[in-house]
Design a protein around this nucleic acid. Structure first.
Length: 819
DNA sequence: CAGTGAGCGAGCTTCCGCTTGACTT
C-alpha cells in the first residue's frame, strides 16, 4: 500500500512523476483548480471584509471524492501544485476541500520534471505559503467584483447578456482603437527609385536615398539620369552577428505557429496539448524561457553530433516580461535526440518547430558580413547631387543557428528592403554601368489589423492575461460578439511607373491588389459601442496599465507587505462609487446615428444597437404609428451605413413569385438572407452573387431545388420501423438522427450496413447529454435570446429534464426513443 | 434556427485562471 499521496495539477505530469518516485508513492492530479467562488451571484461578502464564498466546482466533485478516499489510506500527503500564485492557491483549496488540517501534509515545488528535481523537492518540503494564497484571493475577488458589477450595467445600458472584465474589455479596446487608427489613417504617396547596376558583368540592385512626393519630381530625377555616369563613392564592410531567439513560451509558440504554419492560437494549443499528453514536449502553458540542465546537455550532445562542436553554445535566457511567474520550463522536446514524431501532420509540424527552436537556442551566433555601397551619380543636373544610391549586401560567414531555424516576422505588409545576398566585388572609384532606373509610385500602409497571435503578443507585453488564458480570451471576445475574425478581399489599385532602360525613358500605369487581409480581427458595432461606454465610465479599469498596477499590489500581498482585504477595500471604494454613479447618470449607449429622412413618411431614420444587435429604425415610439425596424446585415455597420442602404433593408420581405402554387418570399433573418416557400427555409448566399433584394423567380426555384437535392443526398438510410430514425451525412461524416436527437456512430462502422436494431442500440448506449454544460452548448443558449414560452412543445418538454441532469449527473431521458 | 425591437415584466445573462475530455450536424 502506498504510504505517500502526491497531488499535482496535470494528469500527464502525474504519470511521469509516478515513474520517478517508486512504489511508495501514488501520484494523482487535481485537474487544475478544485474550488472557486460560487458560480451564482457575486459570492463575495463585501460588508464582511470581502469574505469569499467558495464551492467545489461542479466538474471537480468526482476528483475530490477520489482524492478524499486516497487521503484516508495515505500516511503523508504531498501538495505538488505549481509554484506560482494560482498553484499555491490550489494547494490551499485542496487542504480545505480534502480536510487536510489533521493530516501530515507537505508542500513541495519543482520547476522541471526531471528525476533530480523531484527528489530535491521531496528533500525540501515546506508549508503552504498563505501570503501567496492571499494574493491569489485578491486577484480572484477583484476579477469577480469587476466582472459582476460592470456586466449588469451593460445589460441595462447597452444590451442583455453582454460582459465586461479586466482582461476581455481591454482586449477589445486594443482592437477598437486599432480600427480607429486605420480609419483615420492618411495615406501618403511617394515615388521610390531603384536601380540595377552592373560591374564586371555582374548585376546588383540599389535604392535611392530619398523618395519624391510628386510624379514631376520623380520624372525630373529619372530624366537627369539619362546622361549620368555612376561611380562607387564609399564602400563599407562590417561584421555583424545574429543571435538565436529564446526557446518557446506559450505566447511565442502561438506567434510562430501562426506565422509559419497558419494555425489559430486555439489550434496551436490543442495540437501542443496532444504532444504534451503523448510525452513528446514539456508543458505548453508557460511563460518561462528556462531549460533544465539536462535539456541543455541533451541539446549540446545533439548539436555536436549533428553539426560539430563549433555550432554549440549553451545559453540561458532571462525573462523580460514582468508578469512572468515561471512555474514551468520553456516549451521544449522531452527528448532532444528525437528529431521527429509520429502522429498527424499538425503534430509533426508543430513538433518540428519546437525541436528546431529549442536546438537553435543552444547554438552559436551566426556571423555575417554586411556591405554598404554608396553610389554617386555624375552629370549636369544638380538634382543628381542631392541624392545617392545605396546597395546593401549581406553574406553569411558562419551560419551558426541559422542552420536549423530562422524566426518569422509580423511585417507582412511592410515594404521589402532591397537587401541582396552577395554583392559583386568592387572598389571606391569604380564606374558602374546603369542597366535600368525605375521610379515606382508607392503608398504608405495603415497600421496592420491584429491577427490572433499578434494580439496575444500585445497582451503579453502589457502583462494582461496568462499563458492559460490567451486562447480562451480571444475566443471569448469573439463569442460575445465584440470582435470577428475575418478575411477581407483586397481591391485593385493603380500605380505609376517611370522606367529608364536601354530602350530609353518610358512611363506606364500598373495595377496591383492591395488591402487583402486573412484571419484578422475586426471590432463589431457592439464591440465599439461597449468599448466607448466603458472607456467613458470606467477609465481606470480600461486603461492599459490597470493590470500592471494591481499586479504590483498582488506582489506586495505575496511578500506580506499588504493585507489582501485592505487592498480590496482600497480598490472597491472608488470602484463601487463609480458603478453606482454610472448606473444612475450615464445615458443608454446605442451608438445611435441619424442617417437622414425617410422619403415616404418624412420621419428620421436612425441606426443603433437594439436588443438583438445593430438595426435601423424609422420613426420613434412616441409617434402615432409604430416605428419600423430592420436588422443590419452582417457586413454592414452602424458607423458607415448610408441612407440608401438603410432604405433597402426595409424592402424585405419581398415577394419573389409563385412556385408549385405557393408564394416564394425573400427576407433577411438572424442567420442571413433566406427564401421562404411552403413554410420551408432556403438560405441565400451572397457569396454566390445572390441578393434577397434582386433575386428572381428562376434563380429562387434553382436554389430551392438544389437544397431539396442536397437533402435527399444527405439521407443514407431510412427505417420503416421508425420514420423518425435516419442515417444522414453531416459535416463530420455519417451520423444517426432519431427525432431531434443526433448520435455519433462508433468508429469504424459503415453507416449503410447498419440495421434498425443496431441503430437503436447506438442511440441507447450513447452517454446522456450533459445539458447546460460548458462550451458550445452554453454559447448557443446565450446567443439565442428567445423566450422559452414560444418554443414548440417538444423542446419545452426537454427543458425540465435538462435542468435535472445538470444538477444530478446521471442519465437523462432520451426523447424519441421507443423500446 | 428564420420578419423579434414599447406595452406588463419573471428570471436569466456576467469575471479570470487552473486543468481535461465530451461533443458538435
Amino acid at each position: 500500500m502506498a504510504k505517500n499521496l502526491v497531488i499535482v495539477e496535470s494528469p500527464a505530469k502525474a504519470k511521469t512523476i509516478e515513474g520517478f518516485l517508486g512504489k511508495d508513492f501514488i501520484v494523482k492530479s487535481s485537474y487544475g483548480h478544485v474550488r472557486d467562488l460560487k458560480k451564482k451571484g457575486l459570492s463575495v461578502d463585501v460588508a464582511n471584509n470581502f469574505a469569499p464564498e467558495y464551492e467545489i466546482s461542479a466538474d471537480k466533485k468526482k476528483v475530490i471524492q477520489e482524492l478524499k478516499d486516497l487521503v484516508k489510506k495515505a500516511d503523508l500527503v504531498w501538495l505538488a501544485t505549481d509554484e506560482d500564485r494560482e498553484g499555491e492557491a490550489i494547494s490551499w483549496h485542496l487542504e480545505e476541500a480534502l480536510n487536510l488540517k489533521n493530516k501530515e501534509t507537505r508542500r513541495i515545488v519543482f520547476h522541471e520534471i526531471t528525476k533530480n528535481a523531484i527528489n530535491k523537492a521531496i528533500e525540501n518540503p515546506r508549508k503552504v505559503d498563505y501570503r501567496l494564497v492571499d494574493a491569489q484571493q485578491a486577484r480572484r475577488v477583484l476579477d469577480r467584483l469587476v466582472g459582476f458589477e460592470i456586466s449588469p450595467i451593460l445589460w441595462k445600458k447597452v444590451k442583455p447578456s453582454l460582459s465586461a472584465g479586466r482582461v476581455q474589455s481591454v482586449t477589445v479596446r486594443l482592437i477598437v482603437e486599432r480600427e480607429r487608427d486605420i480609419q483615420e489613417f492618411n495615406q501618403e504617396v511617394s515615388y521610390r527609385v531603384t536601380a540595377v547596376f552592373n560591374v564586371n558583368g555582374k548585376a546588383f540592385k540599389a535604392e535611392l536615398s530619398k523618395r519624391y512626393n510628386t510624379v514631376e519630381e520623380a520624372r525630373a530625377y529619372v530624366q537627369a539620369c539619362v546622361d549620368a555616369g555612376f561611380e562607387v563613392e564609399e564602400l563599407e564592410v562590417k561584421p555583424a552577428k545574429k543571435t538565436p531567439a529564446a526557446p518557446f513560451t506559450t505566447s511565442t509558440l502561438q506567434q510562430e505557429a501562426s506565422r509559419k504554419l497558419g494555425y489559430s492560437v486555439a489550434r496551436t494549443m490543442s495540437v501542443a496539448q496532444k504532444l504534451y499528453e503523448e510525452g513528446k514536449i514539456t508543458y505548453m502553458r508557460t511563460d518561462s524561457l528556462n531549460l533544465s540542465q539536462t535539456a541543455i546537455e541533451a541539446a549540446v550532445a545533439e548539436i555536436t553530433s549533428s553539426f560539430g562542436a563549433q555550432y554549440s553554445k549553451p545559453r540561458t535566457f532571462t525573462n523580460k516580461s514582468k508578469g512572468a511567474q515561471e512555474a514551468h520550463e520553456a516549451i521544449r522536446p522531452v527528448d532532444m535526440s528525437q528529431k521527429s514524431v509520429t502522429g498527424d501532420s499538425a503534430e509533426q509540424r508543430l513538433y518540428d518547430l519546437i525541436w528546431k527552436r529549442t536546438l537553435a537556442s543552444q547554438m552559436a551566433d551566426a556571423e555575417l558580413e554586411k556591405t554598404r555601397v554608396k553610389i554617386k551619380a555624375n552629370g549636369k543636373s544638380d538634382l543628381l547631387q542631392k541624392a545617392h544610391f545605396n546597395a546593401r549586401g549581406e553574406v553569411i560567414k558562419f551560419d551558426g543557428f541559422l542552420k536549423v531555424y530562422f524566426e518569422g516576422t509580423d511585417d507582412d505588409i511592410a515594404e521589402p528592403e532591397e537587401e541582396g545576398g552577395l554583392l559583386p566585388s568592387m572598389k571606391v572609384g569604380d564606374n558602374l554601368v546603369r542597366d535600368n532606373i525605375v521610379a515606382t509610385q508607392r503608398f504608405s500602409n495603415h497600421p496592420p489589423r491584429y491577427s490572433e497571435a499578434a494580439l496575444v503578443k500585445k497582451l503579453e507585453e502589457l502583462g494582461i492575461g496568462r499563458p492559460s488564458t490567451y486562447a480562451p480570451t480571444i475566443s471569448t471576445v469573439q463569442k460575445r460578439g465584440y470582435v470577428v475574425k475575418e478575411d477581407r478581399e483586397g481591391h485593385a489599385r493603380q500605380y505609376h511607373v517611370i522606367t529608364l532602360d536601354n530602350k530609353g525613358l518610358s512611363e506606364k500605369d500598373m495595377t496591383e491588389n492591395t488591402g487583402a487581409e486573412r484571419s484578422k480581427l475586426f471590432p463589431t458595432d457592439i464591440g465599439i459601442v461597449v468599448t466607448d461606454f466603458l472607456v467613458l465610465n470606467f477609465e481606470r479599469i480600461l486603461s492599459y496599465d490597470f493590470t500592471a498596477s494591481v499586479e504590483k499590489k498582488f506582489d506586495d500581498i505575496a511578500e506580506g507587505l499588504l493585507q489582501w482585504t485592505d487592498m480590496l477595500k482600497d480598490f472597491y471604494k472608488g470602484f463601487h462609487e463609480n458603478v453606482e454613479a454610472t448606473l444612475e447618470h450615464s445615458d443608454r449607449a446605442s451608438g445611435e446615428r441619424e442617417l437622414g429622412m425617410d422619403p415616404k413618411s418624412g420621419k428620421p431614420i436612425i441606426a443603433r444597437i437594439g436588443r438583438f444587435g445593430p438595426m435601423v429604425q424609422i420613426g420613434s415610439p412616441d409617434d402615432e404609428d409604430k416605428p419600423k425596424f430592420a436588422s443590419l446585415r452582417k457586413d454592414q455597420s452602424i458607423t458607415n451605413i448610408t441612407l440608401e442602404e438603410a432604405l433597402d433593408l426595409f424592402k424585405l420581405p419581398r415577394k419573389v413569385g409563385e412556385y408549385e402554387g405557393a408564394e416564394i418570399s425573400a427576407a433577411a433573418g438572424r442567420f442571413g438572407p433566406y427564401l421562404r416557400h411552403k413554410s420551408a427555409f432556403y438560405s441565400i448566399r451572397e457569396a454566390d452573387g445572390d441578393d434577397p433584394l434582386s433575386i428572381e423567380i428562376d434563380r429562387a426555384i434553382e436554389l430551392i431545388e438544389a437544397k431539396r437535392k442536397a437533402d435527399r443526398e444527405r439521407l443514407i438510410k431510412e427505417f420503416s420501423e421508425n420514420p423518425e430514425m435516419q442515417l444522414l451525412n453531416g459535416r463530420w461524416g455519417p451520423y444517426l438522427k432519431v427525432g431531434k436527437e443526433n448520435y455519433k456512430l462508433p468508429k469504424g462502422t459503415e453507416a449503410e450496413n447498419l440495421t434498425y436494431e443496431q441503430c437503436l442500440k447506438i442511440a441507447q448506449d450513447a452517454p446522456a447529454k450533459s445539458a447546460g454544460g460548458r462550451g458550445r452548448a452554453a454559447v448557443k443558449s446565450t446567443s439565442t435570446a428567445k423566450p422559452a414560452a414560444k418554443k414548440t412543445s417538444s423542446t419545452a418538454k426537454k427543458s425540465p429534464s435538462k435542468k435535472k441532469s445538470a444538477k444530478a449527473p446521471g442519465k437523462a431521458s432520451k426523447p424519441g426513443l421507443k423500446k
